[in-house]
């Protein structure tokens, strides 16, 4: 199982590396989406091209640049209109000069796709699911749980110990995966790491407790967990209304969103998270949920019979 996890993590890291090295989330290096297939300048080049000086230059020779569109043509005969057009067409270049804007956009794009979508939507739940549900799941599959149950220790203690025992694995692959994904993301990734790691850690612990419970209750915990993650969590996350308050990732995402906003990044760049709850609520839920879920699990487990011939 370890190498499967490592493989998946490797895929994600490769993807992040490719995307970052191609500057996909960087507004400067992003290619503009013009219908022209031959000429695809980066946004920075295109913004420069739209400056009055280069427009006037292009008017003469044309050069390697794309021919100017009708509204981009300099119009010296009508100075007022030309000045207005120059002003408007200079906005992209002005934006490119704003370090804060460039950084924020890059960071928020990275947050949106890498952290919120791929990490909290896939890597974190899947890894915690496989490791946390495996605590009892693998013992059940290999029918060796009986050895624990015959020891003179309370059943609730077995449940708790199993949880604490799987937690390092979950953290290693959940939080460790987060660290790896962030380090692959360069500067932006490092900023994401420092801002989001508490949320990632809390999310890991909360998910681990939930999947540990599922592992103790169901005979096929992985299947139940998959249905929960890829139906409930994903569907609920996009639904409007208060149903998403039942989703654990929502709180982890809220924490991340609030963290990003408090660092001065524009929250509108994370459109799925505009209904985020406050940091205090998210902290409280993410801290309380594992405790309550584990207590519930201890209670249920101490009452349930173990039969290997089921």
């Amino acid at each position: 199982m370890g190498w499967v996890s490592a493989g998946l993590l490797g895929l994600v890291i490769m993807w992040v590396t490719v995307m970052v090295s191609r500057g996909v989330w960087d507004v400067e290096t992003q290619r503009s989406r013009l219908s022209d297939k031959q000429y695809r300048p980066s946004n920075k080049q295109d913004a420069k091209r739209l400056l009055p000086t280069s427009r006037y230059r292009d008017l003469g020779g044309g050069g390697e640049n794309r021919p100017l569109r009708a509204h981009e043509l300099p119009n010296p005969l009508n100075p007022t209109e030309d000045a207005l057009a120059s002003l408007v067409l200079s906005v992209p270049h002005a934006a490119m000069q704003d370090e804060g804007f460039l950084k924020s956009r890059k960071f928020m794009k990275y947050s949106r796709y890498v952290v919120l979508l791929v990490f909290t939507g896939f890597v974190l739940p899947l890894f915690t699911l496989t490791y946390a549900s495996g605590a009892f799941g693998t013992e059940r599959e290999s029918r060796s749980l009986v050895w624990l149950m015959t020891r003179p220790i309370p059943r609730s203690g077995i449940y708790l110990a199993k949880y604490l025992g799987t937690l390092p694995w979950c953290l290693a692959f959940g939080l460790g995966g987060f660290v790896a994904v962030c380090l692959a993301g360069g500067d932006v990734g490092r900023e994401a790491l420092t801002r989001y790691w508490p949320a990632a850690a809390m999310g890991t612990v909360a998910f681990a407790s939930l999947f540990h419970l599922i592992g103790a209750i169901f005979r096929r915990p992985v299947v139940v967990g998959l249905v929960y993650v890829f139906f409930f969590e994903t569907v609920v996350a996009v639904l409007p209304g208060s149903l998403k308050l039942l989703s654990l990732t929502f709180y982890a995402r809220s924490l991340m969103y609030n963290e990003a906003v408090s660092a001065g990044h524009p929250g509108q760049m994370l459109p799925t998270m505009t209904e985020a709850v406050s940091s205090e609520t998210a902290w409280a839920v993410l801290a309380l949920a594992p405790v309550l879920i584990t207590l519930l699990g201890m209670w249920l487990f101490s009452r349930s019979e173990y039969r290997d011939d089921e």
């Binding site: 290999s142 029918r143 060796s144 009986v146 050895w147 015959t150 290997d308």
Partner: peptide, 9 residues
């Protein structure tokens, strides 16, 4: 208790 099952770690 010595169980009848034959499963170990």
């Amino acid at each position: 208790y010595c169980p009848d099952i034959d499963a170990f770690y």
